[in-house]
Amino acid sequence: MVDTPTLTKKFQKELNAGIASLVLLSVLDKTRKPMYGYQIAKLLEEYSGDASFMKQGALYPVLHSLENGGLLESNVEPSVSGPPRRYYAITSEGRETLVVWQGVWKQMKSFVDKAIKGA
């Protein structure tokens, strides 16, 4: 028996692995001002509507790795309520990389669409 839900979950997770970086970079490029994790998660919630593609907790490690690669930078600022927040902003290298990645995504998308439609 094929366990479709489990396989679908795994498929979704594998897709997310690469897409999350592209999405986070794009969001931080669009907003033009530093954002903290929860803000980003809220914004993505608006985009995705009812469908939830990934858990919010999974965004943070991706943010770390983007920062590690020099595509994002961050600084901690105290908040009125609760613990200090880490604000993320895109770097100029991040913008350059994003342009390349968007190109890759475009090609990828048309390739996958063609494969699905069988044009």
């Binding site: 692995a17 939830s52 858990k55 919010q56 907790g57 999974a58 490690p61 991706v62 790795s65």
Partner: peptide, 23 residues
Amino acid sequence: DQYGSPSETASAYAEVERRTVPQ
């Protein structure tokens, strides 16, 4: 529910950590 259960969150970190090693 939105953030992910402790085990889901833990596996997300483990996954990314495996891919990124300090320079």
